[in-house]
Nucleic acid binder design. Sequence first.
DNA 1: CGTATCATTGAACTACGTTCATTGCTGAGA
DNA 2: TCTCAGCAATGAACGTAGTTCAATGATACG
Lengths: 199, 199
Amino acid sequence: MATKTEIRRQELRDKLIIIAERTIAQKGLSALRARDLANEAGCAVGAIYNVFGDLTDLTLAVNARTFHRLGADVAEALADAPEDPVEQLVVMAQAYHRFAADNHLSWRALFDVERAPGEAAPDWYLAEMGRLFTYISDPLAVIFPDRDGEDLALLTRALFSSVHGIVLLGLDEASAGVSTENIDRMIALVLRQFARNPK
Amino acid sequence: MATKTEIRRQELRDKLIIIAERTIAQKGLSALRARDLANEAGCAVGAIYNVFGDLTDLTLAVNARTFHRLGADVAEALADAPEDPVEQLVVMAQAYHRFAADNHLSWRALFDVERAPGEAAPDWYLAEMGRLFTYISDPLAVIFPDRDGEDLALLTRALFSSVHGIVLLGLDEASAGVSTENIDRMIALVLRQFARNPK
DNA sequence: CGTATCATTGAACTACGTTCATTGCTGAGA
DNA sequence: TCTCAGCAATGAACGTAGTTCAATGATACG
């Protein structure tokens, strides 16, 4: 039974996610404020806590959407990529880079959200991460046909982490950021060199 | 002239840095509190602001020391490394990994400190970063003798960022962290593969 | 020694996230 | 339709931060 209360609850939940998403995208995670949120949503501050346990829960809901968009962008890039597995890796990594650059503050929020120590990442995060890893390990399995599953998993993680690091430090303008073209060049350098001459 | 006031000022400054360093190392940057700090230092909260502009300034002073220790560890590893330039890269990267693992919270504070948007990183940060980059680019110049300076700078940055990414995600236990041995394996994989068969 | 100057103090101020006693709706049963 | 038990919504209040500043105390120089 969808009571009037439950409908309103769901509507408020959606509205809060939309507003938080916009705030994070425009001003960053640190600009997310309970009172501003309530003002914009036209509700009382307390109402937020009827729908989300705390602001971190709301941030995680936004992050789930962000991560999903990121995964979709990478998947789309992969769909349009050439057959060559190395080029597939390059295209996906550059799609990752483009997403991070175009959605910088939202992308940062994926990693800046406070996580209670000792608590595992939420399921959707691990699932989405698993999807990304599959996109990477499939071409890798073609490039390195002799490696076993454990090796491929390690390679996959290593390459993802490398690309992530290049994008993370490259986009950090505080430490003299790198131009978009040079970030793409670094990504291509590392990936092409890495996939060269497999044994 | 070193007046009594200036001496006390310097002593308080040093004492605050020591306390903040211990707090960050043991409980993380988020546990750094002005009132606790004043309690431990035996001064008033306001005194902190006579010596540091705000808590971020204090954190930056701690970070400068942390970064310096990090650079020293990497330099020491390089001094003990074999002649082979590829192995030098591996040894340095694993020293970076070890430092991050052994000083996890202090190392995290290097990147978690709030930086005012649009403001450049402090000089000591850029200088220490430059030192690290030199350690990397020297072996790289041996491995890739035909690359010009700009190329080497890009390679240097790419490799540093890659290793940083591997360590960063590997040590993040929230997203199913990686064992110490596997992090070292990933580092060695990426670096050895990268330096293989240069053209 | 006196006193103008500057350091030191900690209560107060601001800005948060979060809670909870109160208020007001909702909807199932009479 | 009417009632009212229970639940949702409210926003003032609470706790905890960083930071400030008027009042106080020490300093150092003539």
